[in-house]
């Protein structure tokens, strides 16, 4: 059964191009069946009608845990603290009446804050642009059943392909690394035969881009996997490393 709770929010507010800081808000009479973002909607309505400042800017779209738009640090944890749950799927029943909640944007050098809780994650797209695809032109494809693919491989590829590009792995990583994200894409194509013709270039270029953009270096601490709302596994990072070593060894071949 749902009930109403009162909360105190400490929210990171930052205007475009200025330094930011925490500000405190009261969230009163929040229904425990509401989602975290719906709670923010309620607070924003109040801020709007009060008219003293702008509502809290935060990114969201699908509110079903699939588009990858949402995400903030909630009490120091990316997407809040529930395993395999995006922020939009986190519900208020997990909070206690009277609790103080600290809300901060995802932090990483490669994710500059744009405004309040909104950060720029375009670096992730730039990594994909370096080879996170199969270069097949429309019209080139053979009949779909030409190449059978072992079910286990297809499933493993799907495990990796489930990444929603939310960037929580980067924000949770003590090094601000984008290894889990990059590894997920590299793995998907390393597992499937369609990805093989380009695998050497793909891994090298994607890793080089990742470094160039200021993402950090993996130190195998696995915070990314704990944070990932889609349960992307660190075995993909091992696979990325293997792909990278193979690509290096096949230098010039």
């Amino acid at each position: 059964m749902s009930e109403k709770i009162n909360l105190t929010l400490k929210v990171w507010r930052q205007k475009r191009g200025e330094a930011g800081g925490f500000k405190t808000y009261e969230a009163k009479g929040i229904d425990t069946d509401a989602s975290f973002l719906e709670m923010l909607d309620v607070v924003n309505d109040e801020i709007t009608l009060k008219g003293e400042e702008e509502p809290i800017a935060f990114e969201h779209d699908c509110r079903e845990g699939i588009c990858g738009c949402c995400g903030s640090l909630v009490n120091g944890k990316t997407h809040g603290s529930h395993e395999r749950t995006t922020l939009c799927q986190l519900h208020m029943r997990h909070f206690k009446d009277g609790e103080t909640i600290v809300i901060e944007p995802f932090r990483a050098k490669a994710f500059p804050v744009i405004k309040d809780l909104i950060v720029d994650r375009s670096g992730l797209d730039q990594i994909i642009a370096e080879g996170g695809y199969v270069s097949v032109k429309t019209g080139n494809a053979p009949e779909a059943s030409t190449t059978p693919i072992k079910k286990e491989l297809a499933e493993a590829a799907m495990d990796a392909a489930e990444c929603i590009g939310c960037g929580a792995c980067v924000a949770a990583c003590p090094n601000g690394a984008a290894m889990l994200f990059t590894a997920a894409k590299v793995s998907q194509y390393a597992l499937l035969p369609q990805g093989h013709p380009e695998r050497t270039q793909r891994v090298k270029n994607m890793v080089a881009k990742m470094d160039e953009l200021g993402f950090g270096n993996c130190s195998n601490e696995y915070e990314c996997a704990v944070a990932c709302p889609k349960g992307i596994d660190v075995k993909n990072i091992a696979r990325l490393n293997r792909e990278f070593i193979k690509a290096t060894l096949s230098q010039g071949k």
Partner: peptide, 29 residues
């Protein structure tokens, strides 16, 4: 070099907490 670069890459974290899974050994490398 890596540690310095990593410090930079994960700048400005104020409220961040690490998970229970991250071992002391890893943290203290």
């Amino acid at each position: 070099r890596l540690v310095l670069k990593n410090r930079q890459a994960a700048d400005h974290r104020l409220s961040q907490k690490s998970s229970a899974e991250r071992s002391l050994a890893a943290k203290l490398m």
